[in-house]
Amino acid sequence: MNLRLRHSLSHRLLGAAALTTALTLLSTGALAQSWPTRSVKLIVPAGAGAAPDVIARLLGERLSQAWGQGVVVDNRPGAGGIPGMSALARSSNDGYTLGFVPAAMGTITPLVYKNPQFNPDTDLTSVATIGTSPLVLVANASSGINTLQDLARFARANVGKANFAAPQPNSLPHLAGEMVNKVGNMGMTAVPYQAPPAALAGLLGGDVLMTTDGIPGLIGQIKSGRLKALAVTSAQRLPGLDIPTVAETYPGYEAIGWFQIIAPAGTPTAVIEKINADVNRIINAPDMVTRLNDMGVYPRADTPSVARDFFASQQKVMKKWVSDLGIQAQ
Results as ranks from 00 to 15, higher is better:
292 L>Q: 03
67 W>H: 12
26 L>R: 12
97 T>W: 05
164 F>M: 11
148 L>W: 02
314 Q>S: 06
204 L>T: 15
40 V>Q: 01
123 D>R: 00
219 I>D: 07
293 N>S: 02
82 I>W: 03
164 F>G: 10
222 I>E: 00
213 D>W: 13
167 P>G: 08
4 R>V: 12
84 G>H: 01
159 V>P: 09
271 V>W: 07
294 D>A: 14
205 G>M: 00
107 T>L: 10
118 F>E: 01
268 P>M: 00
19 L>V: 10
284 N>F: 09
310 F>V: 04
150 D>L: 01
15 G>S: 11
70 G>M: 10
326 G>A: 07
16 A>Q: 14
20 T>R: 13
64 S>G: 06
222 I>D: 00
153 R>W: 10
68 G>L: 05
244 P>F: 02
195 A>V: 12
120 P>Y: 11
15 G>L: 05
93 N>W: 01
321 W>D: 02
180 V>M: 08
48 A>F: 14
13 L>H: 04
112 V>D: 03
100 F>S: 09
149 Q>H: 15
158 N>I: 02
163 N>M: 12
98 L>H: 01
217 G>Q: 07
230 L>K: 07
252 G>D: 00
162 A>L: 09
264 P>S: 05
83 P>I: 08
197 P>R: 06
40 V>E: 04
263 A>T: 05
269 T>Q: 13
19 L>T: 11
242 D>N: 11
4 R>Y: 14
9 L>G: 10
319 K>Y: 13
304 P>R: 03
282 I>H: 04
201 A>V: 08
150 D>M: 06
184 G>W: 05
274 K>Y: 08
229 A>C: 10
70 G>N: 13
7 H>F: 13
319 K>H: 14
177 G>R: 05
8 S>E: 12
307 A>E: 01
219 I>K: 07
197 P>A: 08
255 A>W: 13
240 G>R: 07
325 L>T: 04
160 G>I: 01
169 P>K: 08
75 N>A: 00
67 W>G: 01
52 P>C: 13
55 I>M: 13
15 G>K: 00
261 I>S: 04
329 A>M: 14
131 G>N: 06
235 A>M: 09
129 T>L: 08
188 M>A: 07
260 Q>C: 15
6 R>H: 05
53 D>R: 03
222 I>S: 05
18 A>N: 12
288 M>V: 13
192 P>G: 08
104 A>F: 09
17 A>D: 04
128 A>P: 08
288 M>I: 12
141 A>I: 07
274 K>V: 01
150 D>Y: 10
35 W>M: 12
2 N>F: 11
136 V>D: 01
265 A>D: 09
261 I>K: 07
283 I>Y: 14
23 L>T: 15
309 D>E: 15
53 D>C: 06
55 I>V: 14
58 L>E: 15
207 D>C: 01
31 L>H: 01
220 G>P: 02
6 R>W: 10
162 A>D: 10
206 G>Y: 08
125 T>E: 14
185 N>S: 14
261 I>N: 00
21 T>H: 07
194 Q>D: 15
20 T>K: 10
16 A>P: 00
23 L>Q: 14
2 N>K: 14
45 P>Y: 02
202 G>M: 05
230 L>T: 00
19 L>Q: 11
322 V>C: 07
188 M>S: 06
118 F>W: 03
239 P>G: 08
321 W>Q: 02
182 K>D: 09
282 I>T: 04
3 L>M: 11
230 L>E: 04
125 T>L: 10
195 A>H: 15
98 L>T: 07
192 P>N: 11
47 G>S: 14
49 G>R: 02
